[in-house]
Amino acid sequence: MIHLQLPAALAALLAGIGVYGVLARRNAVLVLIGVELILNAANLLLVTAGSRTGAPFAAGPVLTLFVITIAAAEICVALAVVLVLFRTTGAIDLTAVPDLTDEPEPEPDPQPDPEPEPDLRGEVRS
């Protein structure tokens, strides 16, 4: 027999810690760690709720498995993005002011000495 208040409290605690982790880190990979903690808090809550008697379809554990899978996919894509960011800018510091000039403005076409307007009248006369 177990009191379910304990896992619920742990879930709330983990979520708070995760939020702090997201906000306290400037390294993008470490921010992802915070996100993982929040996800695990959600998982724990699912398992806890699924442990109650009368939960249909074994929803708690099954949804937890799904969330784990989705978390795997998420971390995969997120790390790809982080790596690309690192390769492009050389840093993954989230407090850095983004370089606003990375998209080069469409420069005005270099006008190589514009030709003078053809003088139609002159042509006609000649």
């Binding site: 939020v19 906000l23 400037r26 989230l94 407090t95 983004p98």
Partner: peptide, 17 residues
């Protein structure tokens, strides 16, 4: 949108809360 990411995250989560 192109502000400092950490500040944006902060604002976002504050809004969520």
């Amino acid at each position: 949108h192109r502000g400092v990411p950490s500040l944006s995250l902060l604002a976002l989560l504050a809004g969520v809360v």
